[in-house]
């Protein structure tokens, strides 16, 4: 391979990462800027934490963040339960009535533009209110129901790909040893697919925490999630406390992701070491 080609790919990769990270970096830097003119660096009074202070005194943002956390947690739990059921049914149940419909419906939310999902869910809630009198007002309940409906597909996909590469001999062995099916599921299947459930839960949480389009359609006037508040703030112009908020959110995600990666790496290393030891000692300790 020529030297030029060897350099070309890493250069583009570096450019790509710069493209991905420089905006975030600049936002972090300017969150410590004293000037209200977000992008003009006020060297005399910076760095400062005053926007962070302002953020923690902004009741609207705090209320919205609490509401968003609540919805995201409820959504993640509901979506994980329903999505796991769907993924399990699609991989393990062979042919059953409604399989094709279930398969199509679990992939639909992954590929539909959010604006269509939002519109159709709102029209559904309006129609339900007329016919059944429920939900009588739109707010936390309708946002959560809407979020579960699109998040469960992501969970189903993750669980499906975990189950497809799954060795069934452990379950078989447990059944042979006389364990009841429910016990086999709880003691063997569930722990083995637990990582998929965890990543499904986290992904659903993030999707809900991040969603603005669908929430805006199905939320009533009473409920404003954090993305909805940020969206209306940004629409009015760039404001420095949003920089502070963004920095906090990016830091939390970065710390979480790095510690998860380190944890996984350590587990992987330990597994490799155990494997090496087991292979080096064929007599079995």
């Amino acid at each position: 391979m020529s030297a030029r080609r060897v350099l070309l790919l890493p250069t583009i990769l570096a450019f790509g990462f710069a493209f991905l990270y420089l905006p975030i970096l600049s936002m972090i830097v300017f969150s410590f800027n004293a000037s209200r003119l977000v992008t003009v660096w006020d060297a005399a009074h910076s760095p400062t934490l005053k926007w962070y202070g302002e953020l923690f005194h902004n009741q609207q943002i705090i209320d919205a963040a609490v509401l968003s956390l609540k919805i995201a947690a409820m959504n993640a739990t509901g979506a994980t339960i329903l999505g796991t059921m769907a993924g399990f049914a699609l991989v393990r149940f062979g042919r059953f009535r409604g399989r094709a419909l279930l398969a199509a419906l679990t992939t639909a939310p992954l590929v539909l533009p959010e604006i269509i999902t939002g519109l159709s869910l709102l029209l559904l809630f309006v129609a339900m209110e007329q016919l059944l009198g429920w939900p009588s007002s739109r707010g936390v309940t309708t946002i959560t129901l809407a979020h579960i409906s699109f998040s469960l597909s992501y969970v189903a996909v993750i669980v499906q790909s975990r189950l497809i590469g799954f060795d069934q001999s452990l379950e078989e062995a447990a059944l042979d040893l006389g364990a009841r099916p429910a016990k086999v599921f709880a003691r063997i299947t569930l722990p083995l697919i637990a990582p998929a459930l965890l990543s499904g839960w986290l992904l659903s949480f993030t999707l809900s925490w991040d969603d603005v389009v669908i929430s805006q359609f199905v939320a009533g006037p009473g409920a404003s999630t954090l993305p909805m508040v940020i969206f209306s703030k940004v629409r009015l112009g760039v404001s420095p406390d949003v920089n502070a908020l963004a920095t906090l959110m990016v830091s939390i995600v970065a710390v979480g992701a790095v510690s998860a990666a380190l944890l996984l790496q350590r587990r992987e290393r330990r597994r490799e070491r155990d494997l090496r030891l087991a292979l080096a000692d064929p007599g079995g300790g």
């Binding site: 905006p23 963004a246 959110m249």
Partner: peptide
């Protein structure tokens, strides 16, 4: 790979907002 995925986990809205600042 993690560096590619990481921005996806942070708020989409705030990343768009970051570009407005630039």
């Amino acid at each position: 790979l993690m560096l590619v995925i990481l921005p996806f986990w942070t708020s989409f809205l705030l990343r768009v907002y970051a570009w407005i600042g630039l």
